[in-house]
Nucleic acid binder design. Sequence first.
DNA 1: CTGAAAGCGCTTACAG
DNA 2: CTGAAAGCGCTTACAG
Lengths: 338, 338
Amino acid sequence: LPSPLTLEDIARLSGVSRSTVSRVVNGDPAVSPETRSRVLDVIEANHFQPNLAARGLAAGRTRVIGMVIPQGLGLIFSDPFFSPLIQSISAACNRLDYSAMMWLADPEYERRTIGRLLHNGLIDGVIVSSMENDDPIVDALMRSARPFVLVGRHSQTEPVSFVDVDNRGGAQAAVEHLAGHGYRRIATITGPQNMVAGLDRLNGYRAALEAAGLPYDPDRVREGDFSDSSGYAAMQALLSAHPDAVFIASDAMATGALAALADAGLRVPEDIALVGFDDIPTTCRTNPPLTTVRQPIQQVGQLAAELLIRRIQNPAEPPQSIVLPTQLVVRQSCGLTH
Amino acid sequence: LPSPLTLEDIARLSGVSRSTVSRVVNGDPAVSPETRSRVLDVIEANHFQPNLAARGLAAGRTRVIGMVIPQGLGLIFSDPFFSPLIQSISAACNRLDYSAMMWLADPEYERRTIGRLLHNGLIDGVIVSSMENDDPIVDALMRSARPFVLVGRHSQTEPVSFVDVDNRGGAQAAVEHLAGHGYRRIATITGPQNMVAGLDRLNGYRAALEAAGLPYDPDRVREGDFSDSSGYAAMQALLSAHPDAVFIASDAMATGALAALADAGLRVPEDIALVGFDDIPTTCRTNPPLTTVRQPIQQVGQLAAELLIRRIQNPAEPPQSIVLPTQLVVRQSCGLTH
DNA sequence: CTGAAAGCGCTTACAG
DNA sequence: CTGAAAGCGCTTACAG
């Protein structure tokens, strides 16, 4: 079995010391152009890959970052939010010559896992997405020496680095759009109220009602878990309140709600108007096409990766947070084309 | 910033040498019960986590395995095959005190990535899923010193370790079921013909036609890529051939085909019978519920993980391959309840 | 611009 | 059953 070449091998083959090879590999400018190109040729010819475990041990960094999604693996695949998020994180890392890995664990092992991930010397930092509001992971992260960036803000007294979208503002714009066009019995299907995105979108709904002088009626509020099936159930539960419009905190739930309305014999938007949240790819192919609040997931992922890598390379910088704007995309489910 | 404790710290705190701590951590039986429990107490009390980079360097193993899905990240999320696969791999690893990670990369960096992954000293072996037929990754794997297991067989002259399901047999059973109940113009929507699963399922279709004395008609064969939308397009293309039944090589494509038939005003199974492949969770909720070939994905993942770990711990063992049986699940889309 | 040397935190023969 | 010592493949002051 061919054992991989080491820095030492490359050094011998190119007639320099291992120190010099290391400098070339790491782009240190203090190497003469001739030496550099000679070493690079040998590296190229032999497909040399530095051993990241050794680098991690010696330098304390591996140029690998980790991603953790605490809600468990099931969610990653069922929620269309994660695919573009993970892809954009990965792409941004590659552009900066970092690698991204996703650490997989049983949900029951979650706690232990995050500790293992943080202290195993294999990664330089982590991006953590979609925690619950009081997730102890954040405490573990703050106690650790590893840089981290959250996707989604966290109700935290100490400042932490995060990238989020303006969930509250997006929800408010959606509901104001409905209220501004005459709907009066506007209901909502919320996201989980133990997650910040769920809370923020409900708060946006309430703010819009208040701005429009409409009353807040708890009978017009049902909680879902962002999933298709929870949207179906919540919509059924809302029917007795006879809403004329519903703001739904995710497109997946809106898809379920559309099915529930079809099963109940109600037409969208003639009998009831719908607005979703996310703008996932399937949204424009629903029947009718769904009016929704677009969130820039790709940009969230890219900025999270770039922010994390900046923090890895400059640990002294204070935590930084970014909130990206959302955009109302008007299609047909709201019955209003402007 | 709290720098993590090392073996040396634990050794000092428990009054033994670092060698002994290492033995305790690794479950070496040659440690006295008293020493062991004293050291374990100190480890527990201090939440000690061994540095995996150092272990990887010293021992050549990290107890971490990697997963690679060459088709790119998009597929992982769009194809319902991967969620249970990855979850079962992860669960099996955890049971054996291993960790699983998914290495993320842009498809364009794929080649470079696999080399990095294999030689970076961070993982002990890899599971590679759903390659194309002639994927150069397999050559790279065979040249490397790392143990690997493929999910899905590979047309390879040298023996390699893999876990697969009986795609050919499952397809054949499905089509024989249709033929045995009187359908005569049985069409098929195939998977990608550059992937073994796509080829095998088509071969099963052909074998069943032959067994039933039915002719193979290329006009009744359309190729998809396992996705929903490709199933829609392929079904539309098949309509002019007027099939009375269609065997579809994935449930996702079957879902698309159902939509195409609904749009064309055809009833299932009255006008045309359908059988899918996979038995993904949504299959029993389609309208009508889909008859399909169930493949034991969870078992595939578990066996792949266990096989890989066995190979890591015993590199001398010859490659081993496992082919799991499939099962026809009769629902309503085939029009035949027995 | 380059090299010799120490050290990162582990594992593992080896000796006792 | 336990410890001292060498070594895994890198990085990085330090000296020149």
